[in-house]
């Protein structure tokens, strides 16, 4: 039993370590390396060329063996220091602390909503399997899944923001609205998040619905559902405790993983909506070759995904009694 948790913890730590090492290696693999980046930054800042040369020279002299650099990189990361953004000239950690909650808010909301819809809709069509409703719903699900979320996002901005002007085209809140626990703020935040959330929900709900449909159909064919009917249980109880519960179980891990996955997708989504979450800053960092910010956000998104998978693993035992006794889902 403990073995299971130790394994999962080890895997999470290992993944984070690999990612950190990867970013360390990537920064050094960038054409020109850190010193060229420094030179470029100094040029942008308008520093005198002869002074730049002197700075680079002195840096070259103090350049250390790679393992020392690695050690320093690791220890500064562990103390929460992600470096300073070239482009925004701010500590990377400050940018992330400001932006992350907004992205998490949008993506967690979107994922919860789309799973809620998928569970209900998928179960309904499973019950009506073979009907016109089933055919139409399955067809619609497939059709929706063939639209990338950013395509719908672009359409939303063009239609609802530019053409009709009913939704805002940019930013997390209206100017002047400050983050506080007020009705106005919450309303304004939701108003700005509505289109991004909708474009994720609409484009991703289809495949989850089909997955729920497949699971439900399989559970409906199980003997225990037939026995439950013979035992006289109400249709409602069978639908929730028997079919629903057993059909949702396999989707639980997918739910948490999708939140992490969507955090990655936020780069495109937030660029479209000019929604200043971590995805937007990641985009700015990519375009402006702002490596500290880029790697910092990459690390944060990876950590978020690792954490959500880790939480899924740890809590799965709470909802499925079968895994309590050990790593029986190891094979899957």
């Amino acid at each position: 039993m403990n073995n299971y948790y130790i394994k999962r913890t080890g895997r999470a730590v290992l993944t984070l370590w690999v990612t950190v090492t990867l970013t360390f290696g990537l920064i050094r693999a960038i054409p020109g390396g850190p010193l060229e980046m420094l030179r470029a930054r100094l040029v942008r800042q308008g520093v005198d060329p002869s002074r730049i040369d002197a700075i680079i020279q002195s840096r070259q002299q103090e350049s250390q063996p790679i393992y020392v650099e690695y050690y320093e990189y690791m220890s500064s990361l562990l103390s929460g220091n992600l470096g300073e953004s070239f482009y925004f000239r701010e500590p990377v950690s400050d940018i992330i602390i400001d932006a992350l909650p907004w992205t998490v808010f949008v993506m967690v909301m979107a994922t919860i909503i789309l799973f809620a819809i998928a569970v209900v809709w998928g179960a309904l069509i499973a019950y009506k399997e073979g009907s016109t409703f089933d055919t139409a719903s399955s067809g619609l699900s497939i059709l929706l899944s063939s639209v990338p979320f950013y395509v719908l996002g672009i359409l939303f901005v063009v239609v609802f923001s530019y053409k009709f002007g009913v939704f805002p085209a940019r930013y997390r809140t209206s100017p002047g609205v400050s983050p506080e626990l007020s009705f106005l703020f919450i309303q304004d935040a939701l108003y700005h998040a509505a289109l991004p959330i909708a474009s994720v929900v609409i484009t991703q709900v289809g495949l989850q619905t089909l997955a729920m449909r497949g699971n439900s159909i399989q559970v409906l064919g199980e003997d225990f559902v037939r026995v439950a009917r013979l035992r006289g249980l109400s249709d409602r109880r069978i639908a929730t405790r028997y079919v629903g519960r057993n059909a949702i179980l396999p989707m639980y891990t997918g739910f948490l993983t999708l939140i992490g996955f969507n955090l990655g997708g936020s780069v495109i989504l937030e660029e479209i909506f000019t929604y200043t979450g971590i995805g937007y800053y990641m985009f700015e960092a990519l375009i402006n070759r702002d490596y500290p910010l880029m790697m910092g956000i990459f690390l944060v998104i990876t950590t978020a995904l690792v954490l959500s998978v880790y939480i899924a693993d740890l809590t799965y035992g709470l909802i499925d009694p079968r895994v309590k006794s050990g790593d029986s889902n190891e094979a899957y």
Binding site: V18, F261, F298
Partner: peptide
């Protein structure tokens, strides 16, 4: 466990 899209970017 490494998020695909950011890694690719």
């Amino acid at each position: 466990s490494i998020p695909g899209l950011p890694l690719i970017m």
